[in-house]
């Protein structure tokens, strides 16, 4: 089957999934009741007529199905609506767009670092199986998968931020230019970026190490590795040329899944480090029931996940010819 045909068919499948999710998010939110009532109930200066005007302004006076359809139609135009509360009236597109890069900085850097570090460690662990080194690596990786990421964040802030004083404990930039690290804005930003990225890298590292190790062990058992060794190739060539290439196939799936959820992993890390990204925006918006922001971010993540899934499948078929797109 040709790739184009496959993509089209998958996309067709994903349409009901996408609508299912928009419907789910929308209906969950409506369980809360009238958002305007909730937002203004503590404000004695607002009267009923003003509430009605607000409802009209945000289109909340229409029946629920009409609200849903309106939101969907705007969505297709690429418009995520306007914020109710946190940044009242500001378009969600703008709010997300200005924060996406701050989030991606940590996420992408952390991801690249963790891959670069995890692959050699995983390979090493698989080669020296059951040795002291392997046991140390696998058990630290297990601790890594079991530790809550905010606990790790607090430990890093306390250790490197407070006791050692090497890095700032939160935020993306010093408040006053005179406090800039080495007097430079960019360096100051990198300085702030270090701790959150380190924590994020650490959290991502552990599962990848375990995955690379088990995948490598699986590959090293195959006959073609035996054949490669028997033909007198050096261990280095066998491991890095023959084995690693095949062992990385499951990692591609992992990367694909990861990229889909790229923005979803952010709320906790960003809250620990007071990082002004999409995750924090989501938490703040959820707290005050600012539905357009919540819906917008969920839809965005869903779309990313769906697209990433298709790309992963195609890459998968490309690097492993045994897999056919069906």
């Amino acid at each position: 089957m040709s790739i184009i045909k496959y993509v089209l068919r998958r996309a067709l499948y994903l349409i009901p999934v996408f609508f299912g999710i928009t419907l789910l998010v929308f209906s969950i939110e409506r369980l809360a009741g009238d958002p305007i009532q909730l937002l203004t109930q503590l404000n004695p200066k607002i009267n009923e007529a003003q509430r009605q005007a607000l409802r009209h302004y945000f289109g909340l006076d229409k029946p629920v199905y009409a609200q849903y359809l309106l939101w969907l139609s705007e969505l297709f135009m690429g418009d995520l609506g306007s914020s109710y509360a946190v940044y009242s009236g500001v378009s969600v597109n703008y709010l997300v767009a200005t924060r996406v890069w701050t989030t991606l900085e940590i996420q992408l850097l952390g991801f690249v670092f963790s891959l670069v570090i995890a692959i050699p460690i995983g390979v090493l662990s698989a080669r020296k199986r059951y040795s002291l080194l392997d046991v140390t690596i696998t058990s630290s990786a297990l601790v890594g998968t079991s530790i809550p990421i905010f606990f790790l964040g607090i430990v890093f802030i306390l250790g490197f931020g407070y006791y050692l004083g090497w890095f700032p404990s939160g935020g993306a930039q010093s408040t006053i230019p005179s406090q800039y690290f080495l007097g430079d804005q960019t360096l100051d930003h990198i300085w702030h970026l270090t701790l959150p990225t380190a924590v994020y890298t650490f959290a991502l590292l552990a599962p990848i190490v375990l995955l690379v190790r088990s995948s490598m062990l699986e590959v090293l058992r195959q006959d073609y590795i035996l054949a490669a060794r028997a033909s007198g190739l050096s261990e280095r060539t066998v491991i890095y040329k023959h084995a690693l290439k095949n062992a990385l196939i499951p990692i591609v799936t992992y990367i694909g899944l990861y990229f889909g959820g790229l923005l979803a992993g952010a709320p906790i890390t960003e809250t620990v480090f007071n990082w002004p990204g999409v995750g924090r925006l989501f938490v703040d918006a959820t707290n005050v029931l600012d539905f357009p922001i919540v819906q917008g971010i969920v839809v965005l993540i869903t779309l990313m996940t769906l697209v990433a899934n298709i790309i992963t499948d195609i890459t998968y078929a490309y690097i492993d010819p045994r897999i056919r797109l069906e």
Binding site: L31, A264, I297, I301
Partner: peptide
């Protein structure tokens, strides 16, 4: 496909408000 953790937060907050 659902961002599970985010939906969890929304659900909890909404139930609380509701």
């Amino acid at each position: 496909v659902l961002p599970f953790f985010l939906i969890l937060l929304v659900f909890l907050r909404v139930l609380e408000a509701g």
